[in-house]
Simulated scan of single mutants.
Amino acid sequence: MSKVEDIKKVIGKVTKEKEYLNIMISTNIVGKDFKYSNNMENLDKLYEIGSSSKMFTALSIFLLDERKDLSIEDPISKYLHKEICEKLFINNFDYSNVKIKTLLNHTSGIGEHLNSGDDMALFKKFNNSKKNHPLKELINLSKENKILTYMPVNKQFQYSNIGYMLLGKIIENVTKENYKQFIIKNILEVLGMENTTFIGNNNSSRELIQGHFRGEKANMPSNIALSAGEMISNLEDMLIFLKGVFDCKIVSKETLDIILKSIENSIDASMHYGFGFYNEKNLIGHGGQTLGFYTKAFYLKKDKKYFILSFNEAESGEISKEIIDIIFK
Protein backbone atom coordinates (compact mmCIF):
# COMPACT_ATOMS: atom_id res chain seq x y z
CA MET A 1 0.00 0.00 0.00
CA SER A 2 1.03 3.61 -0.56
CA LYS A 3 1.62 6.05 2.31
CA VAL A 4 -1.69 7.75 1.51
CA GLU A 5 -3.57 4.46 1.73
CA ASP A 6 -1.78 3.56 4.97
CA ILE A 7 -2.70 6.93 6.51
CA LYS A 8 -6.35 6.60 5.47
CA LYS A 9 -6.45 3.08 6.91
CA VAL A 10 -5.08 4.20 10.28
CA ILE A 11 -7.45 7.18 10.41
CA GLY A 12 -10.39 4.99 9.41
CA LYS A 13 -9.62 2.48 12.17
CA VAL A 14 -9.31 4.99 15.00
CA THR A 15 -12.30 7.09 13.94
CA LYS A 16 -14.46 3.96 13.75
CA GLU A 17 -13.64 3.36 17.41
CA LYS A 18 -14.13 7.04 18.32
CA GLU A 19 -16.93 8.38 16.14
CA TYR A 20 -16.58 11.94 17.48
CA LEU A 21 -12.95 12.11 16.37
CA ASN A 22 -12.10 14.45 13.49
CA ILE A 23 -8.58 14.13 12.05
CA MET A 24 -7.22 16.53 9.44
CA ILE A 25 -3.91 16.31 7.61
CA SER A 26 -2.12 18.40 5.01
CA THR A 27 1.30 17.29 3.72
CA ASN A 28 3.38 16.93 0.57
CA ILE A 29 5.78 14.33 1.97
CA VAL A 30 3.77 11.35 0.71
CA GLY A 31 4.61 11.67 -2.98
CA LYS A 32 1.98 14.31 -3.72
CA ASP A 33 0.01 17.13 -2.11
CA PHE A 34 -2.32 15.34 0.26
CA LYS A 35 -5.11 17.08 2.17
CA TYR A 36 -7.54 14.79 3.91
CA SER A 37 -10.03 14.34 6.73
CA ASN A 38 -12.24 11.45 7.76
CA ASN A 39 -15.00 14.09 7.56
CA MET A 40 -14.16 15.90 4.34
CA GLU A 41 -16.84 18.53 4.98
CA ASN A 42 -14.71 19.65 7.96
CA LEU A 43 -11.47 19.95 6.01
CA ASP A 44 -11.39 23.74 5.95
CA LYS A 45 -12.96 24.33 9.35
CA LEU A 46 -11.12 25.95 12.24
CA TYR A 47 -9.34 24.28 15.14
CA GLU A 48 -7.42 25.44 18.20
CA ILE A 49 -3.69 25.41 17.39
CA GLY A 50 -2.59 25.55 21.03
CA SER A 51 1.11 26.11 21.57
CA SER A 52 1.71 26.57 17.86
CA SER A 53 0.64 30.08 18.83
CA LYS A 54 4.09 30.46 20.40
CA MET A 55 5.57 30.84 16.90
CA PHE A 56 3.46 33.98 16.44
CA THR A 57 4.50 35.36 19.83
CA ALA A 58 8.19 34.69 19.22
CA LEU A 59 8.07 36.33 15.78
CA SER A 60 6.40 39.37 17.33
CA ILE A 61 9.24 39.70 19.84
CA PHE A 62 11.78 39.50 17.01
CA LEU A 63 9.85 42.10 15.02
CA LEU A 64 10.23 44.46 17.97
CA ASP A 65 13.89 43.54 18.22
CA GLU A 66 14.38 44.38 14.53
CA ARG A 67 12.66 47.73 15.11
CA LYS A 68 14.99 48.44 18.06
CA ASP A 69 12.01 48.67 20.41
CA LEU A 70 13.61 46.02 22.61
CA SER A 71 16.49 43.55 22.65
CA ILE A 72 16.15 39.86 23.43
CA GLU A 73 19.20 40.40 25.66
CA ASP A 74 17.23 42.78 27.90
CA PRO A 75 15.93 41.73 31.33
CA ILE A 76 12.18 41.22 31.26
CA SER A 77 11.79 43.65 34.19
CA LYS A 78 12.54 46.47 31.75
CA TYR A 79 9.17 45.93 30.08
CA LEU A 80 6.93 44.52 32.82
CA HIS A 81 4.89 46.39 35.39
CA LYS A 82 6.01 46.35 39.00
CA GLU A 83 3.08 44.21 40.18
CA ILE A 84 4.09 41.40 37.79
CA CYS A 85 7.79 41.69 38.66
CA GLU A 86 6.98 41.37 42.34
CA LYS A 87 5.14 38.10 41.65
CA LEU A 88 8.32 36.76 40.03
CA PHE A 89 10.42 36.96 43.20
CA ILE A 90 10.33 33.28 44.07
CA ASN A 91 12.52 31.09 46.30
CA ASN A 92 14.80 34.05 47.03
CA PHE A 93 15.45 34.59 43.33
CA ASP A 94 14.24 37.50 41.20
CA TYR A 95 13.01 35.93 37.95
CA SER A 96 12.14 39.39 36.62
CA ASN A 97 15.86 39.76 35.91
CA VAL A 98 16.02 36.90 33.40
CA LYS A 99 16.62 37.87 29.78
CA ILE A 100 13.85 37.90 27.18
CA LYS A 101 15.66 35.23 25.16
CA THR A 102 15.38 32.77 28.06
CA LEU A 103 11.59 33.03 27.86
CA LEU A 104 11.77 32.36 24.12
CA ASN A 105 13.70 29.09 24.50
CA HIS A 106 12.32 27.97 27.88
CA THR A 107 15.57 28.28 29.82
CA SER A 108 14.37 31.00 32.22
CA GLY A 109 13.64 28.50 34.97
CA ILE A 110 10.16 30.00 35.36
CA GLY A 111 7.52 27.48 36.38
CA GLU A 112 4.40 26.19 34.67
CA HIS A 113 0.68 26.41 35.47
CA LEU A 114 -0.91 24.07 32.90
CA ASN A 115 1.30 20.96 32.73
CA SER A 116 1.04 19.59 36.25
CA GLY A 117 0.83 15.86 35.58
CA ASP A 118 -2.92 15.64 36.22
CA ASP A 119 -4.67 16.45 32.94
CA MET A 120 -8.10 15.44 34.23
CA ALA A 121 -7.83 17.88 37.13
CA LEU A 122 -6.78 20.60 34.68
CA PHE A 123 -9.74 19.77 32.44
CA LYS A 124 -12.21 19.90 35.33
CA LYS A 125 -10.76 23.18 36.58
CA PHE A 126 -10.82 25.11 33.31
CA ASN A 127 -13.27 23.48 30.89
CA ASN A 128 -16.08 25.92 30.02
CA SER A 129 -14.74 28.33 32.64
CA LYS A 130 -16.24 31.80 32.43
CA LYS A 131 -14.00 33.09 35.20
CA ASN A 132 -11.36 35.69 34.47
CA HIS A 133 -7.85 34.41 35.17
CA PRO A 134 -5.40 37.35 35.32
CA LEU A 135 -1.70 36.65 34.78
CA LYS A 136 -0.92 37.30 38.46
CA GLU A 137 -3.29 34.49 39.45
CA LEU A 138 -1.75 32.09 36.93
CA ILE A 139 1.75 32.88 38.19
CA ASN A 140 0.52 32.00 41.68
CA LEU A 141 -0.90 28.75 40.28
CA SER A 142 2.48 27.92 38.75
CA LYS A 143 4.09 28.14 42.18
CA GLU A 144 1.90 25.23 43.30
CA ASN A 145 3.13 22.93 40.50
CA LYS A 146 5.11 20.08 42.06
CA ILE A 147 6.44 18.73 38.74
CA LEU A 148 7.56 21.73 36.69
CA THR A 149 8.85 23.85 39.53
CA TYR A 150 10.88 27.05 39.43
CA MET A 151 14.48 26.19 38.48
CA PRO A 152 17.85 27.97 38.17
CA VAL A 153 18.07 30.09 35.02
CA ASN A 154 20.01 28.82 31.97
CA LYS A 155 20.63 25.40 33.51
CA GLN A 156 18.13 23.28 31.59
CA PHE A 157 15.14 23.31 29.26
CA GLN A 158 11.84 23.56 31.10
CA TYR A 159 8.67 24.27 29.14
CA SER A 160 6.82 27.28 30.52
CA ASN A 161 3.53 28.68 29.29
CA ILE A 162 3.91 31.39 31.93
CA GLY A 163 7.09 32.48 30.14
CA TYR A 164 5.22 32.99 26.87
CA MET A 165 2.39 34.80 28.61
CA LEU A 166 5.01 37.19 29.99
CA LEU A 167 6.24 37.70 26.42
CA GLY A 168 2.70 38.71 25.47
CA LYS A 169 2.68 41.29 28.24
CA ILE A 170 6.04 42.60 27.04
CA ILE A 171 4.63 43.01 23.52
CA GLU A 172 1.67 44.96 24.89
CA ASN A 173 3.75 47.18 27.16
CA VAL A 174 6.27 48.01 24.43
CA THR A 175 3.76 48.67 21.64
CA LYS A 176 0.90 50.08 23.77
CA GLU A 177 -1.30 47.78 21.71
CA ASN A 178 -3.44 44.79 22.58
CA TYR A 179 -1.48 41.56 21.91
CA LYS A 180 -4.16 40.21 19.60
CA GLN A 181 -4.29 43.41 17.55
CA PHE A 182 -0.51 43.36 17.16
CA ILE A 183 -0.63 39.79 15.82
CA ILE A 184 -3.48 40.65 13.45
CA LYS A 185 -1.78 43.74 12.06
CA ASN A 186 1.79 42.48 11.85
CA ILE A 187 1.33 38.82 10.90
CA LEU A 188 -2.21 37.79 9.92
CA GLU A 189 -2.95 40.76 7.65
CA VAL A 190 0.57 40.73 6.20
CA LEU A 191 0.20 37.10 5.13
CA GLY A 192 -3.50 37.23 4.25
CA MET A 193 -4.48 34.72 6.92
CA GLU A 194 -8.22 35.37 6.82
CA ASN A 195 -9.20 32.26 8.79
CA THR A 196 -6.93 32.71 11.79
CA THR A 197 -8.05 34.41 14.97
CA PHE A 198 -8.27 33.83 18.72
CA ILE A 199 -10.41 31.77 21.06
CA GLY A 200 -13.48 33.82 21.87
CA ASN A 201 -12.94 36.12 18.87
CA ASN A 202 -14.00 33.98 15.91
CA ASN A 203 -15.11 36.43 13.24
CA SER A 204 -14.32 34.01 10.42
CA SER A 205 -17.07 32.55 8.26
CA ARG A 206 -15.56 29.13 9.02
CA GLU A 207 -16.93 27.05 11.88
CA LEU A 208 -14.77 25.99 14.83
CA ILE A 209 -14.78 22.22 15.24
CA GLN A 210 -15.84 20.88 18.64
CA GLY A 211 -12.88 19.76 20.73
CA HIS A 212 -12.81 16.81 23.15
CA PHE A 213 -10.89 15.50 26.15
CA ARG A 214 -11.13 11.73 26.54
CA GLY A 215 -14.34 11.82 24.55
CA GLU A 216 -15.99 14.58 26.58
CA LYS A 217 -16.71 17.92 24.93
CA ALA A 218 -14.00 20.43 25.74
CA ASN A 219 -14.17 24.20 25.43
CA MET A 220 -10.98 26.14 26.10
CA PRO A 221 -11.57 29.43 27.95
CA SER A 222 -9.96 32.52 26.48
CA ASN A 223 -7.70 33.58 29.33
CA ILE A 224 -5.65 30.65 30.64
CA ALA A 225 -2.95 30.59 27.94
CA LEU A 226 -3.23 33.95 26.15
CA SER A 227 -0.04 34.54 24.11
CA ALA A 228 1.13 31.01 24.92
CA GLY A 229 -1.65 29.18 23.10
CA GLU A 230 -5.04 30.68 22.31
CA MET A 231 -5.10 31.02 18.53
CA ILE A 232 -7.41 29.18 16.14
CA SER A 233 -6.74 28.51 12.47
CA ASN A 234 -7.18 25.92 9.72
CA LEU A 235 -4.94 23.77 7.53
CA GLU A 236 -4.85 26.30 4.69
CA ASP A 237 -3.87 29.25 6.85
CA MET A 238 -1.23 27.32 8.78
CA LEU A 239 0.46 26.44 5.49
CA ILE A 240 0.30 30.09 4.43
CA PHE A 241 1.92 30.97 7.76
CA LEU A 242 4.76 28.45 7.51
CA LYS A 243 5.57 29.44 3.94
CA GLY A 244 5.42 33.13 4.85
CA VAL A 245 7.81 32.72 7.76
CA PHE A 246 10.39 30.81 5.75
CA ASP A 247 10.03 33.15 2.78
CA CYS A 248 10.97 35.96 5.24
CA LYS A 249 7.70 37.83 4.85
CA ILE A 250 7.48 38.46 8.61
CA VAL A 251 11.05 38.78 9.86
CA SER A 252 14.27 39.23 7.89
CA LYS A 253 16.54 36.42 6.75
CA GLU A 254 19.07 37.51 9.37
CA THR A 255 16.48 37.14 12.11
CA LEU A 256 15.22 33.83 10.75
CA ASP A 257 18.81 32.57 10.77
CA ILE A 258 19.07 33.52 14.47
CA ILE A 259 15.93 31.49 15.19
CA LEU A 260 17.19 28.48 13.23
CA LYS A 261 20.61 28.70 14.88
CA SER A 262 18.94 28.69 18.29
CA ILE A 263 17.41 25.31 17.41
CA GLU A 264 20.81 23.91 16.45
CA ASN A 265 22.32 25.21 19.70
CA SER A 266 19.43 24.15 21.93
CA ILE A 267 20.32 22.68 25.33
CA ASP A 268 17.21 20.51 24.99
CA ALA A 269 18.38 17.17 23.59
CA SER A 270 14.87 15.84 22.92
CA MET A 271 12.92 18.63 21.21
CA HIS A 272 15.85 20.85 20.13
CA TYR A 273 13.72 23.82 21.14
CA GLY A 274 14.98 27.21 20.01
CA PHE A 275 13.39 30.66 19.98
CA GLY A 276 9.72 29.72 19.55
CA PHE A 277 10.31 26.91 17.07
CA TYR A 278 11.68 23.38 17.36
CA ASN A 279 12.81 20.47 15.21
CA GLU A 280 10.64 17.44 14.46
CA LYS A 281 11.75 14.95 11.81
CA ASN A 282 14.22 17.61 10.60
CA LEU A 283 11.35 20.02 9.86
CA ILE A 284 10.88 23.23 11.83
CA GLY A 285 7.69 24.40 13.50
CA HIS A 286 5.66 23.77 16.64
CA GLY A 287 3.02 21.45 18.02
CA GLY A 288 0.10 22.32 20.23
CA GLN A 289 -2.40 20.94 22.71
CA THR A 290 -5.42 22.61 24.27
CA LEU A 291 -8.19 21.19 26.44
CA GLY A 292 -9.75 19.73 23.29
CA PHE A 293 -7.20 19.65 20.44
CA TYR A 294 -3.81 18.20 19.50
CA THR A 295 -1.95 19.76 16.56
CA LYS A 296 1.30 19.88 14.56
CA ALA A 297 2.65 22.38 12.00
CA PHE A 298 6.15 21.85 10.53
CA TYR A 299 8.03 23.01 7.43
CA LEU A 300 11.38 22.51 5.68
CA LYS A 301 12.41 25.48 3.55
CA LYS A 302 15.06 23.65 1.53
CA ASP A 303 12.64 21.17 -0.05
CA LYS A 304 9.41 23.08 0.71
CA LYS A 305 8.18 20.01 2.59
CA TYR A 306 5.50 20.30 5.26
CA PHE A 307 3.11 18.41 7.46
CA ILE A 308 0.18 19.90 9.36
CA LEU A 309 -2.08 17.81 11.58
CA SER A 310 -5.16 18.49 13.68
CA PHE A 311 -7.06 16.18 16.04
CA ASN A 312 -10.17 17.31 17.94
CA GLU A 313 -9.13 15.16 20.88
CA ALA A 314 -6.51 16.50 23.27
CA GLU A 315 -5.04 13.08 24.00
CA SER A 316 -4.03 12.15 20.45
CA GLY A 317 -0.29 11.85 20.86
CA GLU A 318 -0.15 8.15 19.99
CA ILE A 319 -2.23 8.35 16.81
CA SER A 320 -0.32 11.48 15.77
CA LYS A 321 2.97 9.60 16.13
CA GLU A 322 1.61 6.68 14.12
CA ILE A 323 0.59 8.96 11.25
CA ILE A 324 3.87 10.89 11.31
CA ASP A 325 5.82 7.61 11.26
CA ILE A 326 3.95 6.61 8.09
CA ILE A 327 4.65 9.98 6.48
CA PHE A 328 8.39 9.59 7.05
CA LYS A 329 8.84 5.83 6.59
Rank of each mutant, 00 (worst) to 15 (best):
1 M>L: 11
7 I>T: 10
7 I>V: 13
7 I>G: 06
8 K>Y: 11
8 K>P: 12
11 I>P: 03
11 I>L: 11
21 L>G: 04
24 M>Y: 01
24 M>I: 12
25 I>K: 04
26 S>M: 15
27 T>A: 13
29 I>C: 15
33 D>N: 14
36 Y>M: 10
38 N>A: 09
38 N>K: 07
39 N>C: 06
40 M>C: 11
43 L>M: 04
46 L>A: 05
49 I>A: 10
49 I>D: 02
56 F>M: 14
57 T>K: 06
58 A>I: 14
61 I>Y: 07
65 D>Q: 13
68 K>Y: 13
68 K>Q: 15
69 D>R: 14
70 L>A: 12
77 S>Y: 00
79 Y>H: 00
80 L>E: 01
83 E>Q: 03
84 I>L: 03
84 I>K: 01
86 E>I: 05
87 K>I: 03
89 F>D: 09
89 F>R: 06
90 I>G: 07
93 F>V: 08
104 L>T: 09
105 N>H: 10
105 N>Y: 09
106 H>I: 10
112 E>H: 08
112 E>R: 06
116 S>K: 08
119 D>M: 13
130 K>V: 14
145 N>P: 09
147 I>G: 02
148 L>V: 12
150 Y>M: 02
152 P>K: 02
153 V>W: 00
153 V>H: 00
158 Q>M: 11
158 Q>R: 07
160 S>G: 11
160 S>Q: 03
160 S>D: 05
162 I>P: 06
163 G>W: 00
163 G>F: 01
165 M>L: 01
172 E>N: 00
173 N>Y: 00
176 K>A: 12
178 N>V: 10
179 Y>E: 07
183 I>Y: 04
183 I>D: 02
184 I>F: 15
187 I>N: 01
189 E>T: 15
190 V>H: 08
190 V>Y: 06
192 G>R: 02
194 E>H: 07
195 N>F: 00
197 T>R: 05
203 N>A: 10
204 S>F: 00
206 R>I: 03
207 E>Y: 04
209 I>V: 14
210 Q>M: 03
218 A>I: 14
218 A>M: 05
222 S>G: 15
223 N>P: 14
226 L>I: 13
232 I>L: 06
232 I>S: 08
233 S>D: 03
239 L>H: 00
241 F>Q: 00
242 L>Q: 10
243 K>H: 09
244 G>V: 02
250 I>R: 08
252 S>H: 08
252 S>D: 03
254 E>R: 04
260 L>S: 06
263 I>G: 07
265 N>W: 00
266 S>T: 07
266 S>F: 01
268 D>Q: 04
270 S>L: 11
271 M>P: 08
272 H>K: 03
272 H>N: 07
275 F>Q: 04
276 G>A: 14
285 G>V: 08
288 G>H: 02
288 G>K: 02
289 Q>E: 10
289 Q>L: 06
294 Y>C: 14
296 K>G: 12
297 A>S: 15
299 Y>K: 01
301 K>L: 09
304 K>G: 15
306 Y>C: 13
306 Y>F: 15
309 L>H: 08
313 E>V: 05
317 G>T: 12
317 G>K: 09
318 E>I: 15
319 I>H: 03
319 I>E: 06
324 I>A: 04
324 I>H: 03
328 F>K: 12
